[in-house]
Each structure stands twice: as structure tokens, then as C-alpha cells.
Design a protein around this nucleic acid. Structure first.
Lengths: 231, 231
DNA sequence: ACCTGAACACCGTTCAAGT
DNA sequence: ACCTGAACACCGTTCAAGT
């Protein structure tokens, strides 16, 4: 059913000419639908009712497509709120970035992949970082201190949650995983923590973690730590 | 030349029978050499002087290969130091994890990819986390507090530096990047920070960032923040 | 029963042929 | 000059044929 309407869309879109903006929007939509693995030049072209090579008129190669997508996403982050202290301004903006990231769960993957390829930040990311540095500077941070602050915040500035593992529910239990009692014997501290958190959560099924709460907890601990460095 | 000795290795290894351990070691070595992009089932088989399908006797599929590699890497992290306070113990272990990560720069990529695929942590990672939780518990953290602590530490527990972009030197300047003066006009706060850091670094060419210093700065700020939560 | 070559269904991108 | 189909060099994995 989704298949049929997508086909119709593709046929319809054949009329309107391709543009970089339309290519990027379609790429974001495609990744939103099926994850970043579902995003290939060939599938994107099909979605747009166009031959694969036609895309190369608007993006030089796939990496440039990914760059453009990142800029689209960073453009979705709210601008800084004026007339507040630095801590509130940073906090609100980071939480806005996090909402963007939750809307596009695949985004952190391509941003990190880009970073690991040692590519320079995209213009939109540079503008975002520049604005963030500006907030710290206006809040009284020296240049040296804001440098450390940017490193401390790291990818959390863009709303990354930097979990070590995803404990969200909905994971199908591994059929050949050891039984719970054996797990508890082998990893007693994890078991203690997991049972306490599960009990604590009450109605929440599966993982008892409130990811939003934990994110804000870590963010506030970090911001408070930075505030303590101010003269 | 490296090509020739690798070929000789491959021929020699044909004699000794394949084992899961040998497959994993060769995979780690291959990734160390050429990055994770250079690691394919086909190239790995060639390196081992074996037909690609022979690998599937020892790993069910590529994801299981990656899992095995992660366990090899986590096994390289030093065991916890006994007879110290929790903060020192955590600090030393995280710094050991970071040294492992610096030896294998591709490791964070596959660990994060695994996490994003919502796969359960590997046994070695579970054991590592269990041991870390144990250190916090012995240090007087309640179950609830250690839960928050694990979220706050996040992937930094494994030595991840969670930078937003890699400012290391050695990046070839983008030929169609805007000239420095235009960059400075467009991103004034980044320019101010960059010039101050570069001046500060003295002899260091390119990026003036001391990544190790910044990592420890962020780690200590986090640990101090956690210490302040203890009763 | 074990091993393995060919084949399948993809991928990003090049390039030459068609308009 | 523009557009595009076929082709190239890969990839992980299936499967049937060979020993």
C-alpha cells in the first residue's frame, strides 16, 4: 500500500524537474522510512522517478549527498534563545538538537561516519558550532575555557546521547542467549542494576530507562561542571 | 613490498588449519592495516590463503565476525586496579580503554554501528560493564546512582572521545573551501578560538589540540561531578 | 559429509554511445 | 551539449555441484 503510493509519487514527480533541494529532501525522507541502509543512489533515483545517473547532476557523489542531508538536519535545530543566561541557552539548544536527532535516528550515524572519515565539518555544522561558542563567550567564558568546554560537550552539543549500549525495549531476545539466571550469575552487578531499574519504572515494559531523563541528567551534570570553572 | 610479504604470509598460513581465533586475529590485523573499509570477507579470506566460503565455518556471518573482533579488543583493556578509591580505579581503566581505542582507530566505529543496530552487547562488553558497575558500587554509589553514572559516562567508559569533529592535522585542505579570511568573517567565534589554540600550542603544527589532555579534562570533570553526588 | 566454485542480488561510479 | 544505458569492480551470502 505504501508501495503503491510511493510509485504514484515517483510517477508524479517525474514532471517536476530535479533540484538539489528535492534530491536532499527525498534522501532524508527515504532514510526516515527505511534507515540509512535503505538509502542507496539507485533506490533514491527510483523514488524520484529518475535514472540513477541523473542524481550526479546535483550531487558529485554519495558523500556529498550525505553532507547535504546533514545540513538539512542541522537547519532543523532551533536558533538560540536570546535574553537568557548561557546555561539555559546552551541547554535549550542542545535539547532542540536532540529532538531533531530523535526525529531522524539515522542522523547520528552519518554524522559520526563523516567525522571518522576526517572530513571537514559541513557549513551548517560550522555555523552551529560558531553560534554555540558565541553563547559561551557571551556568558563569560575565556577563549581557553570555551575550548575545553567544546571538547567536554563534544557530540552532546548536537544532541548525541553517547550511550554505550541501547537498552531500549523491542529487541527480540537472542534465541541462543544464556538464560536469565545464568546471566545474573555471570554479571551480578548488571543484574542488580537492571532489576532495580525495572522495578523502579513501574508500568514501563522492558527497559525501565527514561532516556530523556538520563540525557538531561548527564547534560546538567556537564553544564554544572563547566559553570564551576567560571571565575 | 608489503604486498609481497603479505602474499608469502598467506601461502604459509595455508598449512596451519583455520580457527575462529586465527580468523579474528587476521581480521583485527587487516582492519589495523587498512581501516574497517578494507575489511571484507573476501579480502580476509585472501589474506588467510583460503576460499571466502571457508570463513563461514568459523563465523556465521560478517556481523558475528565483527562481534568477535570487539571481544578481542575489549580483552586488551587492563583489568581493574585493586586497592584504590573508585575514582582512580575508573579513571585508570577508562584511560586503558582509550589506549586500546587509539591502537585500533576503527574500533569505535564498529562498536557504535553494532549499538545502533540495537544488538545486545557482546559477552566481553557485558563483563567490562559489570566490572565497572562493581567499582562504583564498592565506592559507595547506590544502585540508582550508579545507573545514572553509567548513563553519564556512556561510551566514554570505553574510551570514546565523542568529539564533534576531528581537528587533527593531516587533513588535506579542501580545494574549493572558502579562503581563511572569508571563513573568519563567517565564523568569527571559531576563528578566535582556533587562532588562540594554535598560538597556545607553540611547536605543534596544524591543530593545537592536545587530544589526550582534552579527554582527561572531560573525564575528570565528569568524575568530579559524579563524586559530588555521593552522600 | 565436507568443501567450494559459480551464481545471485545488490552497491557506487565510469564511460561511451545515443540524442 | 546533454542525457543515459551498459558495464566495471566490488560486496555478503546462497546453493548446488564436486569430492
Amino acid at each position: 500500500m505504501a508501495e503503491i503510493s510511493r510509485q504514484a509519487d515517483a510517477v508524479h514527480r517525474t514532471r517536476t524537474p530535479l533540484s538539489r533541494q528535492r534530491v536532499l529532501s527525498a534522501a532524508v525522507a527515504l532514510a526516515d522510512e527505511g534507515g540509512v541502509d535503505a538509502l542507496s543512489m539507485r533506490k533514491l533515483a527510483q523514488e524520484l522517478g529518475v535514472v540513477p545517473m541523473a542524481l550526479y547532476k546535483h550531487v558529485a557523489h554519495k558523500n556529498e549527498l550525505l553532507d547535504g542531508m546533514i545540513d538539512v538536519l542541522v537547519g532543523e535545530i532551533d536558533p538560540p534563545v536570546a535574553d537568557t543566561d548561557w546555561k539555559t541557552a546552551v541547554r535549550l539548544r542542545v535539547l532542540s538538537a536532540r529532538r531533531m536527532l530523535l526525529r531522524h535516528p539515522w542522523a547520528s550515524g552519518i554524522i559520526e561516519a563523516r567525522m571518522k572519515a576526517r572530513a571537514a565539518p559541513t557549513p551548517a555544522v560550522l555555523a552551529y558550532l560558531d553560534s554555540m561558542i558565541g553563547i559561551f563567550r557571551a556568558g563569560g567564558f575565556s577563549v581557553g575555557l570555551v575550548h575545553h568546554a567544546m571538547h567536554v560537550m563534544g557530540s552532546r552539543l548536537l544532541g548525541f546521547s553517547q550511550e554505550l549500549f541501547d537498552d531500549a525495549p523491542g529487541r527480540e531476545p537472542d534465541p541462543d542467549a544464556p538464560p536469565p539466571e545464568e546471566m545474573a550469575a555471570r554479571y551480578p552487578h548488571i543484574a542488580e542494576l537492571a532489576s532495580a531499574v525495572a522495578h523502579d519504572a513501574g508500568s514501563v515494559v522492558g527497559s525501565g530507562c527514561d532516556d530523556q531523563y538520563e540525557f538531561e541528567f548527564a547534560l546538567d551534570l556537564t553544564l554544572d561542571g563547566l559553570a564551576r570553572l567560571l571565575p
